[in-house]
């Protein structure tokens, strides 16, 4: 089938040319998709912020700032309406999930109560742990309107005030951990 002989120069040359062509094409496509990828990520973030804080008129993403909590760095997005701070969205994460990383966006009202929470990323078990998602069950609504000051962000088994998801205590615990982290960051650096 192959017409060319398998001499050393032939082989090296072919492989080199093929790899070169591949690298050039990929570099080109990389440049082409770089912006849409960044846009898609930004859009996702903006939608998450919109979901968790009250109506705002500013651009929270442009005013984002970092706060260090217990060795991790969390990003806070202040939401303002007509110049007045109405809430803060905190992007938090935990690695204690049943299948590792869970990333959430927690929205606090200006007075420190939780307005709403949105899960950005998780790999929890379908049908069990994935009930932390809004679309899958009403479980996460129990946080809305609560102030972590007097609402212990721990599952009842551990002495807190959160009802764990049946058969998914680990996922519930991890979720609480992420929200707790967000609250700490909010306490430390929010209300600016």
């Amino acid at each position: 089938m192959a017409n060319k002989e398998s001499t050393f120069t032939n082989m090296v040359l072919t492989l080199f040319l093929v790899t070169l062509a591949a690298a050039t094409t990929l570099g080109f496509i990389y440049e082409l998709t770089k912006e849409p990828i960044a846009e898609a990520k930004l859009r996702k973030k903006n939608i998450a912020i919109q979901k968790v804080v009250p109506d705002f008129t500013n651009e929270p993403n442009a005013e984002a700032y970092d706060v260090a909590v217990e060795g991790d760095t969390l990003t806070l997005y202040p939401a303002r309406k007509d110049g007045k701070l109405v809430g803060t969205a905190v992007a938090a994460f935990t690695e204690k999930g049943y299948s590792g990383l869970i990333r959430v966006m927690v929205g606090f009202n200006a007075n420190g109560t939780i307005n709403n929470i949105s899960v950005l990323q998780h790999q929890e078990t379908p049908g069990l742990g994935d009930k932390i998602e809004k679309g899958k069950s009403d479980w996460s609504r129990q946080f809305n309107g609560k102030n972590p000051e007097d609402f212990q962000l721990q599952v009842r088994k551990d002495g807190g005030d959160v009802d764990a998801i049946t058969a998914a205590t680990i996922s519930s615990r991890a979720y609480c951990d992420a929200v707790e982290k967000a609250y700490k960051a909010f306490q430390k650096g929010g209300l600016q």
Binding site: T19, A22, A23, L26, G27, Y30
Partner: peptide, 8 residues
């Protein structure tokens, strides 16, 4: 900065 070449 060429992590897009990872798979290859």
């Amino acid at each position: 900065g060429i992590t897009f070449m990872q798979t290859i």
